[in-house]
């Protein structure tokens, strides 16, 4: 119920028409006379989303950025999680604490701090110039690069933690058994460790991918206006345009796009439970 009620309200708004009123949309149910109640469902908002290339491009852009970020998070996060899981017990907690440390400062502040680092006069450019690696400052802020960097930086712990939990639980004697049967260390990893850590890979990827699709703060602070993500569109519709029905339709469409991976995830988890 806690999740369902706000969702139903948003769904209701997405089926209404915008109006110059407060709240700025038409009611779904109106009394015509004492005996007749009229239900008006507007699907125009969804048609509008479909017909307007701005929205489709924003969706595709969001999905692409989220997908690439997820893959990069996985490539960076897997070795980290692996190293933590194989580290000695006394080191393990320190390493886990370091992964979680950024959570102790507010998210907005952390993302904002990157603008100071990536700026033309930022720390990174100044350092590179000082080290004579570059002669003129690089443009990093307000580029897709900065958006990827921000997303990976922010969501990496969500990848590392479930991966660590899976890898840590793996039976080390399986590795011994594989090498005993003639597998080189590389084969042990690809034949045994990697397939058995699949549940962690899926959990981590979804935890990164789903919030990254709807991300608003990072592209707003670090990205440019040329490749808009869906979160930005949503924000503009809601607050600049005050077109609540369209904004709600954007949100519902996003939800539907995300529900598919969630259902896949649930299905996979169910299969995992069944087999163990």
């Amino acid at each position: 119920m806690f999740f369902l009620i706000p969702f139903l309200i948003v769904l209701k708004i997405s089926l209404a028409d915008s109006a110059l009123a407060r709240p700025p949309f038409t009611p779904l149910l109106t009394w015509i006379d004492a005996q007749h109640l009229s239900l008006t469902i507007t699907i125009g908002n969804y048609q509008y989303l479909w017909q307007n290339s701005l929205y489709i491009r924003a969706y595709l852009n969001s999905l692409m950025i989220a997908s690439i970020s997820t893959v990069l998070c996985l490539l960076i996060g897997y070795p980290m999680a692996f190293a933590i899981a194989r580290a000695r017990t006394e080191w393990r907690n320190i390493m886990l604490l370091m992964v979680m440390l950024p959570f102790w400062t507010p998210f907005l502040l952390r993302v904002y701090a990157w603008t100071g680092l990536l700026d033309q006069n930022g720390l990174i450019n100044r350092f590179l110039e000082w080290a004579h690696v570059i002669s003129s400052p690089l443009t990093m802020l307000y580029t897709p690069f900065a958006v990827y960097l921000g997303i990976i930086y922010s969501y990496l712990p969500f990848m590392v933690l479930p991966l660590y939990a899976t890898l840590e639980r793996l039976d080390a004697t399986l590795d011994d058994a594989a090498s005993d049967l003639g597998a080189r260390p590389r084969s042990v990893f690809f034949d045994i460790t990697l397939p058995l850590s699949m549940p962690g890979i899926i959990a981590g990827s979804l935890l990164v991918f789903i919030p990254a699709v709807g991300e608003f703060v990072i592209p707003d602070l670090l990205g440019s206006d040329s490749n808009v993500m869906i979160g930005r569109v949503l924000y503009d519709e809601f607050f600049s345009n005050r077109d609540w029905p369209t904004a709600s339709a954007v949100a519902i469409a996003l939800l539907v796009a995300l529900v598919v991976p969630i259902i896949l995830f649930q299905y996979y988890q169910g299969k995992q439970l069944e087999s163990s």
Binding site: D171, T173, D176, D180, L181, G182, D191, I192, L196, S275
Partner: peptide, 27 residues
């Protein structure tokens, strides 16, 4: 270990849970 001409049977058996019996033995 992967280059030694000996094989081990583990106390916990250490069978690969994601492979069937045939593939475990064939590994």
């Amino acid at each position: 270990p992967h280059l030694r001409p000996v094989n081990m049977m583990f106390q916990s058996y250490a069978l690969f849970p994601h492979m069937n019996v045939f593939n475990n033995i064939a590994y």
